Amino acid sequence: MLNELEKKLHSEIPLTKYMQLKVKELNENFLITKAPLNPNINDKSTAFAGSLSTLVTISAWSICYLKLKEMGFDNCMIAVIKSDTAYRAPVTKDLICETKVPTVEQLNLLKRKLEEKKSGSIKIESKIVQDDKLCVEYKGVYVVKI
Score class of each variant (00 low, 15 high):
32 I>D: 05
50 G>I: 01
132 D>I: 10
12 E>G: 05
116 E>R: 15
96 I>P: 05
22 K>N: 03
113 K>N: 14
105 E>N: 05
32 I>N: 04
99 T>K: 11
118 K>Y: 13
77 M>K: 14
126 S>A: 13
53 S>C: 15
3 N>Y: 09
139 K>Y: 01
33 T>E: 04
12 E>I: 09
81 I>F: 06
107 L>N: 02
103 T>M: 01
95 L>H: 09
4 E>L: 15
63 I>M: 08
146 I>A: 12
84 D>Y: 09
58 I>N: 00
94 D>K: 15
33 T>G: 07
82 K>Y: 03
35 A>G: 08
104 V>S: 15
10 H>N: 12
119 S>V: 11
31 L>H: 00
24 K>S: 10
62 S>F: 08
122 I>E: 00
65 Y>I: 04
77 M>N: 09
33 T>D: 02
98 E>P: 04
109 L>R: 04
30 F>P: 01
76 C>I: 00
105 E>G: 02
43 D>M: 10
33 T>C: 15
59 S>V: 04
144 V>Q: 03
68 L>V: 09
120 G>N: 03
26 L>A: 05
93 K>R: 15
59 S>T: 13
96 I>C: 15
142 Y>Q: 00
140 G>R: 01
109 L>Q: 04
104 V>I: 14
35 A>R: 04
103 T>V: 04
74 D>V: 14
145 K>W: 00
25 E>V: 04
12 E>D: 12
89 A>I: 02
113 K>H: 14
77 M>V: 14
120 G>Y: 07
110 L>F: 00
114 L>M: 13
142 Y>D: 00
113 K>G: 04
45 S>K: 07
15 L>A: 15
39 P>Y: 11
22 K>Y: 03
14 P>Y: 08
37 L>F: 06
134 L>M: 14
28 E>V: 03
46 T>A: 06
92 T>W: 02
6 E>A: 02
63 I>D: 04
9 L>I: 02
116 E>L: 15
72 G>K: 10
134 L>F: 07
17 K>D: 11
11 S>G: 01
47 A>L: 02
70 E>T: 12
114 L>S: 14
71 M>D: 08
64 C>S: 13
126 S>H: 11
6 E>C: 03
117 K>L: 15
97 C>R: 03
90 P>H: 15
146 I>V: 12
60 A>L: 00
7 K>V: 07
